[in-house]
């Protein structure tokens, strides 16, 4: 593999439909600098097999290059001893890897169902109009790249936006416009559950596994995360077992067994519990047969 071969073309990377956008990077045939090569190798060394580092390596390429470039792909390929086509096959699979230059601030608007219904669709429409860009496009000043994103695991804060993958919770069309205006004006903006926002390239460096020392910024949790806990505190609810009368009272145990639905946690006598456990074990065996089905995901039910 010749990383300095200026004529090399990466399928899916150099075949971008937006030739103008690609050419603005003025990409040279110079390889990445030695420091970046060293860090790319450092990523690979974290794993029993270096190729496991490819995703973080591509994050590092984006932090250095502002997108996934041909020479970034060549560098990964060279270090891992695989072909550039194999690297670009990976780079084109994941949505966080960008083939066109990304602005200083990647602004995501969740338009998956729940956020869309709660206002995400209207926020995204307003932002497109306000910024005069379409989906996955960057403003002329290079400040903002707007993209609608899928569920980002913050549904109790809907409608949710992200800036450089930091949470901006409970947004409205008005607050979304104010947010991007402040970003474009260079004003400091903080995540609702995190630190002052860094640039997209700086964020990509953290994702590559090079921490930026901002872990201690921001709160433990946002208000919605604590709704249930606060109720438990007010009512003095804990996870301790509450003695339910006299444990040895056979009569009471029988009474509980009569009405098992009254409390999901209510249990009968010790003997009844053992029987239940046996039943659970038997049922588990059945579950195993069922769940060993190759179609069963085992992990997240997706």
């Amino acid at each position: 593999m010749t990383a300095s071969d200026g004529a090399s073309r990466i399928p899916g990377i150099d075949d971008g439909t937006n030739a103008a956008a690609v050419s603005t990077t003025a990409e040279t045939s110079e390889p990445l600098d030695a420091a970046t090569y060293a860090e790319l190798r450092e990523i690979g060394a974290r794993y029993p097999q270096a190729r496991s580092g490819l995703l973080p390596m591509l994050h590092l390429v984006q932090s250095v290059e502002g997108r996934v470039t041909s020479r970034g792909i060549e560098a990964c390929a060279e270090i891992l001893g695989i072909s550039a086509a194999e690297v670009s096959g990976v780079a084109t699979f994941y949505t966080m890897y960008k083939r066109r230059p990304v602005g200083d601030y990647h602004v995501g608007v969740c338009t998956n169902t729940l956020c869309a219904v709660m206002g995400g669709d209207l926020i995204f429409e307003r932002l497109k109009e306000h910024l005069d860009v379409g989906n996955d496009e960057t403003t002329d000043d290079g400040a903002i790249t707007l993209e609608h994103v899928e569920c980002n695991a913050a549904c109790d804060y809907a409608p949710v936006m992200t800036v450089n993958w930091e949470f901006m919770d409970n947004m409205t069309p008005d607050s979304a416009c104010a947010l991007v205006d402040r970003l474009r004006a260079g004003e400091p903006v903080s995540s609702t559950r995190g630190p002052r926002l860094v640039t997209w390239r700086q964020a990509e460096r953290v994702l590559a596994g090079f921490p930026d020392d901002l872990a201690d910024e921001g709160p433990s949790a946002g208000p919605s995360s604590l709704v249930g806990l606060q109720i438990a505190r007010e009512r003095e609810w804990t996870a301790e077992a509450r003695p339910d009368g006299d444990d040895d009272s056979a009569a009471e145990a029988t009474a509980e067994q009569v009405d098992p639905a009254s409390s999901g946690a209510a249990e009968g006598s010790h003997e009844a519990e053992e029987i239940e456990d046996d039943a659970a074990v038997a049922a588990s065996d059945a579950d195993v047969k069922h769940e060993d089905n190759p179609d069963n995901p085992g992990g997240d039910d997706k």
Partner: peptide, 10 residues
């Protein structure tokens, strides 16, 4: 034998 509160923070 024992019962638990409605919410059980662990």
């Amino acid at each position: 034998m024992s019962r638990f509160d409605t919410l059980t923070p662990v």
